[in-house]
């Protein structure tokens, strides 16, 4: 069996859905952050696969992946800093407990 683009797309779609599911059911902020990473990595697989199977070779897909990895790292850095702040303010990292604002 040869591995075609379909296999890559299925893997990335599965990863994306697992990440989305995790964000919806997980209550721990760290787990949510990991699930977001999972979704962003699904996109990276997608981009690299599409780039590899292009009819005419160009590298823009791989270039996009480099940027996307960098941005994901920046996002996680800010996210971790904010989680520490939340822990200091609320003494918890459970997102259900963060409900001081309603309406």
């Amino acid at each position: 069996m040869t591995i075609g683009i379909t296999h890559f797309l299925i893997i990335s779609a599965a990863l994306f859905c697992i990440g989305l599911y995790g964000i919806l059911i997980k209550r721990n902020l760290f787990s949510i952050l990991m699930c977001i990473e999972l979704m962003l990595n699904a996109v990276n697989i997608n981009l690299v696969a599409f780039n590899h199977f292009l009819p005419t070779p160009n590298l823009s897909g791989q270039l996009m992946v480099l940027f996307s990895i960098t941005v994901a790292a920046a996002e996680v850095a800010v996210g971790l800093a904010l989680i520490f702040r939340v822990y200091r303010d609320f003494q918890t990292v459970n997102i259900d407990k963060l409900n001081s604002m309603k309406g």
Binding site: I36, L40, A42, V43, N46, F50, S68, V71, L98
Partner: peptide, 26 residues
């Protein structure tokens, strides 16, 4: 801090969705 973390989670979720859309367009 509560506002920021809520914005971060929803914002990064929307980033991931946008980026997935971009990859499909690509």
């Amino acid at each position: 801090s509560e506002a920021a973390i809520k914005y971060l989670i929803i914002g990064s979720l929307s980033t991931a969705v946008t980026l997935y859309g971009i990859s499909l367009i690509y």
